[in-house]
Structures are given as C-alpha cells and as structure tokens.
Design a protein around this nucleic acid. Structure first.
Length: 351
DNA sequence: AACTCGGGGCA
DNA sequence: TGCCCAGAGTT
C-alpha cells in the first residue's frame, strides 16, 4: 500500500512535467473527452489533433452532432479510417439526446452502453471527464503493465487480460486523481515504456518494474502475432462528363462502407485501356474515347497492400447504368462527399 | 477465439 | 517491411 502511494506519486510528478499538450486536455468536458477517445482508438495522438479541432468546430455540441447528417459526420471523419467509429459516434449522439436529454451520461454503465464505447473508452471518459475511479487498458498500458509485473503470458489471452485489468484497477482504486493517473500511465507507455528500446533510465517508476529488476522489459509483452499482407492490384477511373464526376457508394460489407469512391476494379495485372473500357461498359454502361493512365498510388489497408492504377476517362458516352448506387456530382458536391483517403488523394494528384 | 475495420508513424 | 497506434463489434 505504501508502495502504491510511491508509485502514484512518482508517476504523477513525472506526468506533471512531461505530458504533451493536447486540445482535449486543456478543456476536458465530457463531450470533448468522448470525441477525442473515439478518434484515438487505434490512432496516434499527432494524427488526431487536427481532426479533433476541425470536428469540434463543425460539431461544437452533442446536439449539433445529433442533428447532422451521417454524410456530414463521415466527411468530417474522412481520412481517419475505421469509419464505423464515426457512424457509432453519430448514433450515440442521437441516443444521448433521446435518452439523456442531450447531456452526456455520468454513470459508467450508461457510458458503456453507448455504441462504439467499450470498456476502455468508458473507463477513460469516466475517469478523465468525471473523476470516477475506473481503470483503463489499451496498447500503451498493456505493454507498461506487462513489464511492471513481468508478465510472461500472452497478453491477448483472457486470463492475462483479467490480470492486467485487475492491476489497472488497483492503480486507480481510492485515488483522488484517477483521470490523471490513467493519462499518465498512457503517456508513460508512449514516451518512456516504448515498444522498442524502452528508456528505462528515465523511467520514474523504475524501482517498481519487475521486468527491469528481474527480467528484460524489451522482451515484453508477449503477443504472438502474424500479420500477413496480401498484394492486390486495382484500377480506379475518374470519369468526367459535363463538368460532373461519377462516384459510387460503397455498400455495407465492402471496403469503405458508407463512403463514396470512384469506379474501381480489381485487376490481376497492369491493365490496358481496352480491357478497362470493357469493364467500365459492363459495370456502368459507359464507354470512354480515351482512358489515360495518370499515376499509381501504393497504399495499405488492413491486410492488403494495394497498388492502385489511376485512370482519367475522356469522351465518355452511354447511359449510366449500375447495380450499385452511383451519382454524377459537380465539383462542389464532390468536395462535400465523404471519400476514401485514396479517393481524395487521387483528386489531389490530378491538381 | 478469430476476424474485420483505415490509415499513418517509425525503425 | 513489419509492427504499432489512447479498440469495438461481429462471426
């Protein structure tokens, strides 16, 4: 117990001097903390900051978010990835207006019940915005705790997870500053207890670290994983006619569901314009006088590394027909539609 | 328990 | 090129 007190003290005094400034930290209202936590899921802080500021400007309150269209929310989210987060965020805002009179719920169980909020996020919001003594567990703290406790077991196993959650709970139990403790733990994991080459010499809780004293922190956590990438080739066409551009809606189940994209085809080898024109004809009922290969974009999504061959179509004729939803949009509409990140990048390349 | 969902940072 | 990032929801 005396040990715990020293741990917290060392942690918090380090945090006080070493934490990074973040917009949601300067004004941690429940709404702002909520938005930040959703954006931060599987996404680095530096990436989130700009999105957060823009999002707060577009949707300053829960009510304004609930009143927006899903398309506008997705447009604000464009480029962040994991677009289901934006849809759940939107749904949760509506739910808060309906069930909680537009006021973000204070009870942990009510927070946890909102779509897109799991145990981590509920704990983070609860502790940071409401000073409830709720634990958190995520990438940084899993690594930190595995080292502090010298846990050898696979951290993805439920048994190990229970152990880690219990430890997380013990760190905030009966604390006056659970939110700061949780944020300090993550900050420590990010800055000091890093994946590679942890900076143990600068660690404020080194004397509490079982792995440092009796093992090897750099060998933890044990997380047997096997990401195998598959290489794909795709062709995308920007089809213009009468100053309008053809876009299609990505359907539930395929990539970027709910976002808009340009006509896109899976190809097995670099494609000539004739083959591509045939695909364009078959799928959209259109033919192009010329299909010009403009550039190639390499990008990775989840398990796939994709080489995207981008084409521009000119002299387009035919009647638009498609089994999936398509629209011809002018440039202003194109700007306001949520596109995939690579879709948006294609437009910038052309410019 | 395994899969899916984006995109970018970093060694 | 592989691993990771303030995970959640579905199968």
């Amino acid at each position: 117990m005396e040990n715990l007190k020293r741990f917290r003290q060392g942690l918090l005094s380090w945090y006080k001097n070493s934490h990074r400034e973040m917009p949601w930290r300067t004004e941690p209202t429940p709404y702002r903390v909520w938005i930040s936590e959703i954006m931060l899921q599987q996404t680095q802080v530096t990436t989130v900051v700009a999105y957060f500021l823009r999002f707060m400007e577009a949707f300053p309150t829960i009510e304004s978010l609930a009143a927006a269209t899903e398309m506008d929310v997705l447009r604000a989210w464009e480029g962040l990835g994991y677009y289901r987060r934006a849809k759940n965020l939107h749904a949760a805002a509506k739910e808060i207006c309906r069930k909680h009179s537009g006021k973000f719920p204070r009870q942990f169980d009510d927070i946890l019940a909102l779509p897109g909020i799991g145990r981590y996020t509920a704990g983070a919001i609860s502790s940071i915005a409401f000073q409830n003594q709720k634990p958190i567990l995520e990438g940084n703290t899993i690594r930190l705790f595995a080292r502090l406790q010298n846990i050898q077991g696979d951290v993805s196993l439920p048994a190990t997870q229970n152990l880690l959650w219990s430890f997380a709970e013990s760190l905030v139990a009966n604390s006056r500053r659970p939110g700061d403790i949780n944020q300090a733990l993550m900050e420590l994991g990010n800055q000091i207890c890093t994946v590679k080459n942890p900076h143990c010499i600068s660690c404020p809780v080194i004397q509490h670290c079982d792995a440092f004293l009796n093992g090897d922190p750099s060998k933890l956590p044990n997380k047997p994983r096997k990401i195998q990438y598959e290489s794909l080739m795709e062709a995308a066409i920007v089809v213009r006619r009468n100053k309008k551009t053809l876009v299609r809606l990505c359907l539930p189940g395929d990539r970027w569901a709910g976002l808009w994209d340009f006509p896109r085809f899976s190809i097995s080898e670099p494609t000539d314009s004739m083959t591509l024109n045939r695909l364009l004809q078959q799928t959209y009922g259109l033919r192009a006088r010329s299909l010009t290969p403009e550039f190639r974009i390499k990008h990775a999504v989840t398990r796939f590394r994709i080489e995207l061959h981008c084409f521009w179509a000119e002299g387009v004729t035919g009647k638009t027909e498609s089994k999936t939803p398509v629209r011809w949009v002018n440039d202003q509409q194109l700007h306001s539609l949520p596109l995939s990140a690579t879709g948006r990048r294609m437009l910038e390349f052309k410019r």
